[in-house]
Design a protein around this nucleic acid. Structure first.
Lengths: 262, 262
DNA sequence: AGTGTTAGTCAACAGAATTGACTATCTATT
DNA sequence: AATAGATAGTCAATTCTGTTGACTAACACT
């Protein structure tokens, strides 16, 4: 058993464990040597905003799996279970974190240009960069709707682009979904693959190459003819290339659309 | 400091927990009333295949979060930690499960037609359906490469389609990645959104609609003009629509390519 | 002062992955 | 066949997680 001898006010343990407060134990007397290890936090000093700020710091530093009630408590100098006064459970906390991050990233990034294609590229870049900035949360961000306070501004921006391209209501909505899903899904996968452990990434990559070298040209003529081992799913250039293909396709569809302008 | 006084942990709960075998406990005597609850499994009766079969059953029945070493033990009538003789850790087990499932789904589904566009649709459908069949595993399937024994046949098939379309080596590889990533990423997100708890899905959907109704037409003219609340990310028709846009774009690019054939 | 509400604390619980020691069983060698 | 060695299955224990219900101190209001 480790007895925390000479517990200094600054915790900074490897494990953000509960630090006992001897001051409040059975005897009212407080021994002179040990300062109160953690004072009870001031009432109302904790709220959703403060907790979410700490959660952001932790998840950026240690990843999403490092975001636990223990680590939050350590970061805030509060008891791990304090958070339950402000969030029903961990799911609610993560959702709120996603929302708060989106608030910051999307602010004022969507400036319209005269070209609807360029506008789509801008909208795509904003979301893509946002996902890559918080790769730990990417899978959650894409699959769950959350409350989307900022999501509407992005939607407005892209929908307008499709109207500019000459699509009618129905098609504009349809292709807005296509576009949005593409951006979210690809960004999510790319980000997720980035935050696998380094070693796993290398092992997977290596395994790929080895298998590749051994392919039978009889059975796989096209692959062996192409000759290069492919890039992994985490490669960003594929995102851009796919975006351009989409835009190309949308151009073709816009030309054959009834109200084709621009 | 908490000294764990009298650590009583008689388990034998309702769940398929470890069933104690009194016959082998400290005293050699075996009380008459209780028969041995679980007999030790025959040596060599456990192996990767048997375990993966059980894992498949469990993950289809209870989802990926229901796949634990405990549940595996219960399903197999073995001790939970037996699995460690065959899999280094849970990660390795899940990876192996993904691989084994892919083996079954991809078998003989890729019959070539004369039209490269149609071939792309076929390849997309195979993967899409596979992901939707095992939604719990979808996120892992897309982000991680695993060992891909069957993945090469899919790649061969699609690469050939791009050669048929008239692309040169470099472009064929590039667009094969684009296509593959699109299919994997979209399928993954769609599947993942499907296996959220029903209630969460409804809540998210409802919150969306409510927010939608309240939008200010001044601030969001395009959205309010379009007039319909959009479909969620889990809608399959968007996958197909996006696929068609991609193919349209690829057609346009193929025409302008140097070796443009049929 | 006194009372009540509530935010922060604490101990405890259940259930997860994982580890190291133990044991039974199969295999190979004498 | 007897014995030794290897190894598959078992078991207890550890550490970490989210979560709950009781407790306690601080503030808000009479």
């Amino acid at each position: 058993m480790f007895i925390p001898t000479a517990v200094i006010l600054e915790d900074t343990h490897d494990d953000g464990r509960t630090l006992t407060n001897p001051g409040t134990s059975a005897d009212g007397t407080r021994s002179t040597s040990d300062a109160p290890v953690r004072t009870r936090r001031k009432r109302d000093s904790l709220n959703r905003t403060v907790i979410l700020d700490a959660a952001k710091v932790i998840s950026e530093r240690d990843g999403l799996e490092g975001l636990t009630f223990q680590s939050l408590g350590a970061e805030l100098g509060a008891h791990p279970t304090s958070m339950y006064r402000h969030f029903k459970d961990k799911d609610e906390l993560v959702l709120a974190l996603i929302d708060s991050l989106r608030d910051r990233s999307y602010l004022g990034a969507l400036v319209p240009t005269g070209d609807w294609r360029e506008n789509l590229r801008i909208a795509a870049r904003v979301v893509h960069e946002h996902y890559l900035r918080y790769p730990q949360l990417a899978s959650q961000m894409a699959a769950r709707t959350t409350r989307m306070p900022r999501e509407f501004s992005n939607m407005e921006y892209t929908l307008k682009a499709f109207f500019d391209a000459g699509f009618d209501n129905e098609d504009a909505l349809k292709y807005q979904r296509v576009f949005g899903n593409y951006v979210r899904a690809l960004s999510s996968i790319e980000a997720t693959s980035h935050c696998l452990p380094e070693q796993v990434q290398r092992e997977d990559e290596l395994a790929w190459r080895i298998q590749f070298e051994r392919l039978d040209p009889e059975e796989y003529p096209a692959i062996t003819a192409a000759g290069q081992p492919p890039l992994g799913i985490g490669d960003a250039s594929t995102f851009d290339a796919g975006l351009e293909v989409l835009i190309k396709g949308l151009e073709a569809l816009a030309e054959s659309a009834p109200g084709a302008g621009s």
